[in-house]
Simulated assay, not measured.
Amino acid sequence: MKKVHALLNSKQWDIGWISLGIILVIISTIISSNGNITLTTVTSFLGSIIGMTVVLLLANQSGKFATGLGVIGALFDTFNNYMFGLSGMMFVGIYAFFIYLKGFFSLGKQIAVTKVTKSNLIISLCIAVAGGVLLLTYGSTILPNNAPQWVIYCNALVFIIQVVSQYLMVEGKAIGWVGFTVINVINLCLQSYVYISGANPAALVYLAMTFMFLLNSVKALVLWYGFGE
């Protein structure tokens, strides 16, 4: 575990991870744009790069800088989802904006990992209930139409775990990364389904990107829980 910890905490890992991630974003942008560069093509590209940078910084327990950059990334996500007509996900972007804004003003240079409190659990429950209400109200703009029932359930589960985990992560709770790890595993299954069904030519790239995010969440688990120190 010491060797694993040292590897995941090294600059070489971070440079390799972000470099491969940027390559995958470029490939997916080229495939999805099909040679037609629009405003949303540019904002989606920038949002993806910023999003990857933010999660890498957060995995390394960067506080103020990571959440400050997260505020900018959330604005991109909100705009992109608005342009794509995804009302539900637009609200997730707004939610992320305020979560990151809170972190920017409350966190120091580095995130101090602390134990989950009763207050954290109550707030997490409230967020989960609010997320459920949002799904019921705007579910058609978040969940796919004409998809198998298990895909719909998985999307709903990912959505609720995501909003709770984001709150816990900014609060400095390592368990938030457990949630993100679960999300990435579920997303791997979803992306595999999309790729196998042949519904999206860029699905293989998104599948690879999801795997990259899974690697980052595993890195965060190792560092935040202190395994191998």
Results as ranks from 00 to 15, higher is better:
2 K>S: 14
4 V>H: 02
6 A>V: 10
7 L>K: 08
12 Q>R: 04
20 L>Q: 03
21 G>N: 06
22 I>V: 15
22 I>E: 01
28 S>K: 00
29 T>H: 04
31 I>P: 03
34 N>T: 09
35 G>H: 07
36 N>M: 09
39 L>E: 10
39 L>G: 06
41 T>M: 02
43 T>Y: 10
46 L>S: 13
47 G>L: 04
50 I>Q: 03
50 I>W: 04
51 G>L: 04
53 T>C: 06
55 V>E: 01
57 L>G: 06
58 L>Y: 02
58 L>K: 01
58 L>N: 05
60 N>K: 15
62 S>D: 11
63 G>C: 07
70 G>E: 02
70 G>W: 04
73 G>M: 09
74 A>N: 04
75 L>R: 06
76 F>Q: 11
77 D>L: 15
81 N>M: 13
82 Y>V: 10
83 M>A: 15
86 L>I: 11
87 S>M: 10
87 S>H: 13
93 G>E: 07
94 I>G: 09
95 Y>L: 10
97 F>I: 01
99 I>T: 02
99 I>P: 00
99 I>R: 00
103 G>N: 12
105 F>H: 07
105 F>Y: 14
105 F>N: 05
107 L>H: 07
108 G>F: 11
111 I>S: 02
117 T>A: 05
119 S>I: 07
119 S>C: 01
119 S>M: 06
120 N>K: 02
123 I>K: 10
126 C>N: 02
126 C>L: 13
127 I>T: 10
128 A>P: 08
129 V>N: 00
132 G>F: 03
135 L>V: 08
136 L>T: 11
136 L>M: 14
138 Y>E: 14
140 S>D: 12
141 T>M: 04
142 I>W: 12
143 L>K: 03
144 P>K: 07
145 N>Y: 01
146 N>G: 01
147 A>Y: 01
148 P>V: 04
149 Q>T: 15
149 Q>D: 13
161 I>T: 09
164 V>Y: 09
167 Y>H: 04
169 M>A: 12
170 V>F: 00
171 E>P: 03
172 G>P: 08
174 A>R: 11
177 W>D: 00
179 G>I: 03
180 F>E: 05
180 F>Q: 12
188 L>D: 12
192 S>H: 10
193 Y>P: 08
196 I>Q: 06
196 I>Y: 10
199 A>C: 01
201 P>A: 03
202 A>S: 13
202 A>F: 05
202 A>K: 06
207 L>K: 05
207 L>T: 11
213 F>N: 04
214 L>A: 10
216 N>A: 13
219 K>S: 05
220 A>H: 07
223 L>T: 07
225 Y>G: 06
